[in-house]
Design a protein around this nucleic acid. Sequence first.
DNA 1: TCTATTTTTGATCGATCGATAAAAATATTG
DNA 2: CAATATTTTTATCGATCGATCAAAAATAGA
Lengths: 216, 216
Amino acid sequence: MPRPRSFDEDKALDAAIACFWDRGLEATSVRDLAERMGIQGPSLYNAFGDKRTLFARALERYATRTMRERIARLEHEYDPKTAILTFVRDAIERSVSDPRRRGCLLVNSALEVAPHDAELRVRIAAYLDEIAAFFRRNITAAQKVGTVPPAVDGADTARLLLGVVLGIRVLARTNPDRALLEGVARPGLALLDGRRPRTRRGFNRAPPQERREETP
Amino acid sequence: MPRPRSFDEDKALDAAIACFWDRGLEATSVRDLAERMGIQGPSLYNAFGDKRTLFARALERYATRTMRERIARLEHEYDPKTAILTFVRDAIERSVSDPRRRGCLLVNSALEVAPHDAELRVRIAAYLDEIAAFFRRNITAAQKVGTVPPAVDGADTARLLLGVVLGIRVLARTNPDRALLEGVARPGLALLDGRRPRTRRGFNRAPPQERREETP
DNA sequence: TCTATTTTTGATCGATCGATAAAAATATTG
DNA sequence: CAATATTTTTATCGATCGATCAAAAATAGA
């Protein structure tokens, strides 16, 4: 008997993601959101609660679409070591190819909202931990198939790679220069070879992967 | 003939730093600032221009007091390699010992204001570059005195260490867990030994250094 | 077609935002 | 003391903030 929704909830969430990705939580007004979502203010509140709840929903959707689905795709398409390399190179490609310097919404949120919102902080920490777990899991798998030496410390190297990706995403918003970002990544990725990373080898481009502009 | 200032400009700037460090640029109101600076709103505008200009002044003071003076102190007190190690360990100590999770104002600002403010972005990028230059300079110096193997790529390792510190500062606001932060740093610092970083050695605490609570 | 239920619309709430005008206060200089 | 220059104070500006209310509109089942 009820009147049905006149808008698509997922598309509205994607519009909200675009807003929050561009300007963060505080700097995005409910009016900005409503306009880009193609609805009126009260419809937003009716469908999503308040601004913070909408933000949490948008963040969750972003995590699934941008991080989890990509991780699943990498682990399906590539061997473990290549999956790690491609993930990091992808972060670089996304960073240098975005003239708006949006960086990563998860990292942006880690800095803007995590310290002042206990519930969101736990969720954001869990998102970042999924990235670390991806590294950890694939290092172990790569050691099993022999592409990463068994002497490499999996736990610490996974943490280092998380730090490298976070650092790249900070620079993505400040100084997204390819030479800089590849310089950050190269010694970290060289750890997976177990060599002493002395000679500076070429930084192989990631294989071309479909890129969308607006969707995370 | 003019009536003199009734407040100390540096102390007012320190109060402004405390505000911006806690909540960022957007979330800090002029009324918050005026109250913590011990002045009235119009006095703030009279002395510092507008909020953004005050922010730029606060950021510059923070950079000098928190980064440049520390770098100078480290390079004066320690040998080059120890200076690097202590800088990174310091970032960890500051991160795990701050229950308010303030992180680093430069990194926070890199994410909040850099993408939307060209002038501040250039300044923030320059601040971060000073950190990279510190790493670069001391790697070279350490290689000269033989504490870092000559085979280590100085340019890339400096960039990696910048990325590691930035990553640590992101986690400082989200999940400042000592084991995690030390895990991020350990393989990065091990690169300075030129060894294959396999065995997980103990993470030596930084020597106790005076800590101030409110002042950067 | 009528009724029940929900969504959408248009208007607006009090609070707070950054910033300022005008006047009072305080110092130095002549 | 009087003139001048600056700061501080008090009050407030218009704009925008997140959020809400009442009423109209729309759709399903009875």
